[in-house]
Amino acid sequence: MAIAARKRILPGFGLSLGFTLVYLSLIVLIPLSAVFFKTATMSWSGFWSAVAAPRVVASYKLTFGAALLAAAINAVFGLVLAWGLTRYSFPGRKVVDALIDLPFALPTAVAGIALTAIYANNGWIGRLLEPLGIKVAFTPLGVLVALTFIGLPFVVRTVQPVLEDLETEFEEAAASLGANRWQAFQRVVLPALSPALLTGFALAFARAVGEYGSVIFIAGNIPMVSEITPLIIITKLEQFDYRGATAVASVMLVFSFVLLLIVNGLQAWTSRRTGRAA
């Protein structure tokens, strides 16, 4: 302890850490714990009937399924975009690069009504899809579109810096050993990118699972068909079913915590592999 105390030449340790802990507890930890305290007052059967009701289970399937699919789509197109932005020069590159973060900056409600306008039957894209028999707005497909929109920057922004820092020597070595570009990409570049790609996928997935604002406008919110879990929580709250809302929230929270741990592990892996802070 004496050594530790001597090392602290800089002032403000007690004040800054104390304030951090108090603020963190008041704003985040104590309020979040309320979910678990409230859930603990429920009987097991009451809890189970709230979280395993058919309508709620249908919402889990939609929420997690669409989030997983959206994250996968983003992993593919996020990699393609990150590759295009780092490897190729083309006119408008800076503008595209800046606008990638639009889903971070655009309020979700605005994204929701804009996507609905585009994919409705008379919308710019909905009009083209209708003759093909594809309905996007007010169907589960609409949920997928909204979740894809909000998840894209997570993949691009985790893959892009790794791709920029990737030493060209590996690909040079692959080329001099006779590998063609596709082999070099597959065997050399992709393995180096995979931790970042997985991190981006997990971040996009985690964000999509909890998303509310951009989804509810385009989803149509039909029970058993296109109703997401966050909306179930809101509906229960509006009916003053606080216990039911809290029980479903606790299921989502536990899932989020597990996902957070996985993301942290992935980020540690990325920084070990690439030697940079994620």
Partner: peptide, 21 residues
């Protein structure tokens, strides 16, 4: 890790916790 926690909590739950309190 705890500081990052609010990023992984659904916004709906962020509202719910203050209703519970």
């Amino acid at each position: 890790t705890l500081i990052d926690l609010p990023f992984s909590v659904s916004p709906v739950i962020a509202g719910l916790i203050y209703v519970l309190i």
